[in-house]
Amino acid sequence: MRDEATFRVKAGLAEMLKGGVIMDVVTPEQAKISEDAGAAAVMALERVPADIRRDGGVARMSDPIMVRGIQEAVTIPVMAKARIGHFAEAQVLAALEVDYVDESEVLTPADEAHHIDKWAFKVPFVCGATNLGEALRRIAEGAAMIRSKGEAGTGDIVEAVRHLRAITGELRRLGALSEQELFGAAKELQAPHDLVVSVARAGKLPVPLFCAGGIATPADASLVMQLGAEGVFVGSGIFKSADPPMRARAIVEATTHFNDPERVAKASEGLGAPMDSLEARKLADEQLLSPRGW
């Protein structure tokens, strides 16, 4: 008797991706380059975040033909992005049998009040979060993997650090609270009390926590891994750089050896120019992606 799509099976794939790098790709060729460089999974999307920022307009899920082409090009897991609240896009991606759906703030939100009911799907979901309350709300909706949001498409790590530190710091504080105080904490976090209690007891999220949004160098990957990320997503950082295969290999190596500065130094040598960057602090409010999907 087989039980498919249990929460353990959904979060299980994220467990398998730990210590790995998930790379944004827009074509099968990029997917193959990523796999050959050591990507643990690829993320199919229409445009990488840096191009979404540059070109503007509504950013949507990828063309199904492109998703299929990417699935045929590689043997590693293929993820794909759907707009926040756009459960029909998620249904399409599920029908294509992608391995994970990313309900992503990088695309233009389709619903400003409701996220996708992720329990309704067999395919697992990853969602972004800027703090612990947001992470717990997404998990309550059925997300089986969380990534700190950062500010995608900037190449600036500062927001990724802010969000990761917010989540891990709040987790530590939660662990120090009494049973009585956890009622108040649940109210402040705006998350279900039973989930808050179980997370406080475990001292960690019930799903893997990855980091995304602004990783452009091997040292960036090492930084966020040392801050408690269990793996990394790299969006524009690879295919907007001067030498994508070499940078991809270097970020993979630095993610494995994140605690070994000599190896991170070696991985950082001679990579050519990184992606064109934007200082996240200088972006106008309406240009920020991370506040989307409260």
Binding site: E4, A5, V9, M16, Y100
Partner: peptide, 26 residues
Amino acid sequence: RQVRSFEADLELAGVDGGPVRAVFIR
């Protein structure tokens, strides 16, 4: 692919005391 991942109870030779809960991921 992932949508076919599953868990099941499995008799494993050499492991006594009933079936093992086995999680299969891709």
